[in-house]
Design a protein around this nucleic acid. Structure first.
Lengths: 211, 211
DNA sequence: TTTCTGATGTGAAAAAATTGACACTCTTTT
DNA sequence: AAAAGAGTGTCAATTTTTTCACATCAGAAA
């Protein structure tokens, strides 16, 4: 059941950036940071930063600032990064393989258990030690392996049917790279990575800059 | 020189979605659409859609709606998709190769001319017909090939130095996939694709959904 | 211990974004 | 040709987000 004291999506989308800088600060051995200093790093205003953190309860101390380690741990918890997730990818093309190959996700607690594809020429191949399996076998795989996240890296034509498969098998989080919207039940979360749209925005600003 | 009647970034980020649906409508041979119908497709409100288009001058007709072909053409122009761009990629790992391989960008007018890497084991290889070259040779390549867009798919440690190379060679648009911020002059546009952050937001909502 | 400094948490103000409402005009129908 | 219908463009209201300002309290210094 979702909380009713909803934190706005605008705030949520800033959290990962805080988390990233706090991770860096922690690695550098810095133990204390003020909203003012975080403002310089992130580009958000100090006021905004304090407001953001206050959505989850004040983590700071007056006259001192924030303890880096504490704040990092809190954000980790808020972002759900204190648990591990199992993921599968449907679409074993270059993008799917690139994601499967990226160690960074695994370090953050997201483990890709398997790729799936319908193309017999890639089925059976391995990316790192991750096997590409026949899409026909995905139902049982998901059920047997406690998969929480489904990744879609197919062409847009197949994306909805992949989403349907995920939903049918009880997956509650979908990470979609296909350039299309998806229809899913309310209790399923879809996060889109819209590469096309991002590129178009770049194009817009390039154009706007020269006018 | 940038326009002073700035359209807000919030609006700009919605434009590609309009463009995507208009492309689909055009392909289906639909010639006419109302803000109400677009609202159903995009999930934005009809009022918002009309407001958005009005930032660029009204394209619609009272009592009729919008002509799909006209609106599509206008958006194409606004997004700068009526010209072609040459791009290069630094970082010929899986992600760089995936992007080089993706036909969709080329169809939209973005042509990847070359990949660059410092790893001798990949230099000389080809992705489709796109060669991977030695990063040492990038300066002259950019100058000789009219490159407008620089793509960064390196690890985060190298990203800033790649950005510096791009800037030094006059590139005005950078598409950055490395999970780090970049420092560039004001007249250079950076568009980030933050895969980590996107995944973390998914994780946040997965967690929030179960509380 | 007491004073001083610094930075949070928060309420209020300002700015930005979204939604609502409708006059007006173009299209379609009769 | 006239009447009816439909949907934009736009102004105003509302909601959301951001910024401002400061009382308050913890830590450091004296």
């Amino acid at each position: 059941m979702a909380k009713d004291n909803q934190v706005s999506i605008t705030v949520v989308r800033r959290l990962p950036k805080y988390y990233r800088y706090l991770t860096e600060l922690k690695e550098k051995g810095i133990s204390r940071i003020s909203s003012q200093e975080l403002s310089v790093l992130t580009g958000f205003t100090a006021s905004q930063i304090r407001q953001d953190f206050n959505n989850f309860g004040g983590f700071g101390q007056q006259g001192y600032g924030y303890n880096v380690e504490d704040l990092h741990r809190e954000l980790k918890k808020i972002l759900g990064l204190d648990s591990n997730y199992n993921a599968v990818i449907v679409g074993a093309g270059n993008l799917g393989q690139a994601i499967a190959n990226y160690k960074g996700f695994e370090d953050a607690g997201f483990k890709v258990l398997s790729l799936f594809d319908r193309n017999p020429r890639v089925i059976g191949l391995k990316i790192r030690d991750i096997e590409i399996r026949d899409i026909e076998t995905i139902d049982s795989f998901i059920k047997e392996n406690n998969v929480q996240i489904g990744i879609i890296t197919t062409p847009k034509e197949s994306a909805q049917s992949v989403a349907d498969i995920y939903v049918k098998n009880g997956i509650k989080g979908i990470w979609n790279f296909a350039p299309t919207d998806l229809v899913v039940p309310d209790n399923v979360v879809v996060e889109h990575v819209r590469l096309n749209e991002s590129l178009f925005v770049l194009s817009y600003f390039l154009r706007a800059m020269n006018e």
